[in-house]
Design a protein around this nucleic acid. Structure first.
Lengths: 240, 240
DNA sequence: TCACATTTGTCCGTATGTATC
DNA sequence: AGATACATACGGACAAATGTG
């Protein structure tokens, strides 16, 4: 009968100053005291308020910035502003972990397929008119991009983000956002997608949206499988 | 035919010094120049090497620390050391995003079920003897924990991390690590799991491992479904 | 167009706590 | 116990950016 000291007893004061500061500010965001769009006091003012040095405040702000809580701007009327979403900053750590452990693109593609097939099930159950509209809006953006002679790679990645949102389960949004970041990064480094490929992908997306709108589950599953197979081929061919 | 200036033209020098430093160090880790366990020069030395101030080095180190690239220790022979894994630091940003967007536990549980069922398919296909052994080792740890009068909540969470590893696809490891962090955090804040509940979970895990070892796919799926339903009940009851 | 004020970004000097030898 | 080497932390100073009058 050994009691569990490790969870009962915590370090009294091993925490560093900047950690106290960043945790305190995080808490103010979580409990709604600090709302998105709101301006934080200047670094000097924060240092006075917390009764710490400006260096500690700066290191705390770096943490909050990297975590996506705030963005900072220099100059008059500059400073730290609370962000409205943390989704985009989620992807950095995920991508770092991915690269650090040298995960293969193929593994990522395979896992992504499994997860997105689940997402689709949720989408067919829960998608409403607004979601269908958002998906169609993505198709319009992608097509206009294509019409101006560029590939629609970014828009076609975004399609899957919008799809995840239509599942009405934000957990999927976070996960898919992270995974799609891998493909976005891959494109920025290596990929030069042909416009014909983009066109084919968009056509597939269009058919998929129609199937979802019509609640044709079997067809939708089939179409998503085809789309992911297409995407897999494009990525793997270009990663040689 | 509007050319895509946003991807063609990048800001010439908007980057801050500490970003340059942290990116440079990240790159050295990614390309293998800096290996896990290796010691970085002191802050003073790094400042000299990069020809920047100590403050910039410190802010860069904060970023690398938060991202999980390094850990720092004070004292002689202290300093920054390259980490061997980034998995554990992956969870912080995920958890922050989760809280920031106030995702419901139920959504998280539902998404987790969908994803873990996919993981199980991969596990049944790919798990080898070592994986089965790792899973059994987890059961031993959980039981000994129970025998000493504590709940085995942490070990039972860890079971699912080990399961993800058995899929042989590191993408699943990253995703599951992130999701399980939500439950680990939940426990640390609210949950007081009864030992009887832990015992029941462990028995379920044991049956699941046996089914996986015997490659009985249908049975394994059934058992995992039951386990997740159990976990869902325990969490939701305690979150009232 | 041109200062001016404010705030971040950066560097330096110094002091303290901490861990190792 | 004392010396050493490092992170941690504070304060002062100046440069760079940026909005305002």
């Amino acid at each position: 009968m050994v009691p569990d000291y490790t969870t009962l007893i915590e370090p009294v004061k091993n925490r560093r100053t900047f950690e106290e500061v960043s945790d305190k500010l995080k808490e103010l965001v979580f409990n709604g005291t600090l709302k998105p769009g709101q301006q934080l006091p200047s670094e000097q003012a924060l240092a006075r308020l917390f009764a710490v040095g400006r260096q500690s405040v700066r290191e705390a702000l770096r943490i909050l910035e990297l975590s996506g809580f705030i963005k900072t701007r220099a100059g008059t009327r500059g400073g730290a502003v609370i962000e409205g979403t943390m989704l985009s900053k989620m992807t950095g750590p995920f991508l770092d972990t991915f690269k650090f452990h040298k995960v293969s693109l193929e593994d990522c593609i395979n896992a992504r397929k499994a997860i997105e097939m689940s997402v689709l099930e949720f989408v067919i159950r829960s998608a409403d008119d607004t979601d269908i509209e958002n998906l169609r809006e993505n198709l319009v953006r992608a097509k206009s991009r294509l019409a101006s002679g560029n590939s629609a790679y970014e828009e076609n990645i975004d399609f899957h983000r919008v799809l995840a949102r239509a599942s009405k389960n934000y957990t999927f949004c976070i996960v898919m956002e992270s995974i799609m970041a891998v493909f976005a990064d891959f494109k920025s480094r290596a990929l030069d997608v042909r416009t014909e490929q983009s066109k084919k992908i968009i056509e597939g997306h269009e058919a998929l949206v129609n199937a979802i709108a019509a609640k044709k589950k079997k067809l939708a599953i089939e179409l998503l499988e085809k789309d992911l197979a297409n995407a897999k081929m494009i990525v793997l061919v270009n990663s040689e």
